[in-house]
Amino acid sequence: METERKFKKDMEDITDMQNELQMSFDAISENEAFARLAVAAFVMPLDPTMEEISDIKTAVSEAVTNAVIHGYDEEYMQERDRQGCSGEKREKVHMYCRIEGDMLYIEIRDMGKGIEDIPKAMEPLYTTKPELERSGMGFAFMEAFMDHLEVISEPGCGTVVRMEKRLQAAEEENDL
């Protein structure tokens, strides 16, 4: 009885959780693994299923890869340097995550090239870099693996990707 009450109490504490994670890292491919591992660790208190962890890691990996390859596109950065208007010395990707109850919010932001035609960029199989063997499935994966996806971008102003996912495991525990 006592342990049951304590268990319920613990669960209430967890579902009240409003943890936040904010990190900025260099826009290099090594950090794709770092970003998705950080998010995986961040959601652990919600006791997600293996599948949910895998979905979240994939979506984060896609968004960060987009920032590294497309946001800070090499040609664009060289052009920007030539014009002498580079703001940050090193290109950074900013990630912000928040847990609210059983909801996970993720925002991934770069200050790079931006997207001219967002609906086109989000089409499955569409890629501006076929020579790099990009499959054009990045946004499609984010959409498939998360509950909600929003892309805000303007050429020259960078890109913000917002994603949401409700974690079933946390939901089930609420029913206890």
């Binding site: 998705r36 895998s54 890691k57 994939t58 990996s61 896609e62 890869t65 790099l132 063997e133 990009r134 499959s135 054009g136 499935m137 990045g138 499609a140 994966f141």
Partner: peptide, 13 residues
């Protein structure tokens, strides 16, 4: 244990 769309690019290529 983990693969994102980059793996799809490898296979299609």
């Amino acid at each position: 244990r983990f693969m994102d769309s980059s793996g799809i690019g490898i296979i299609i290529g």
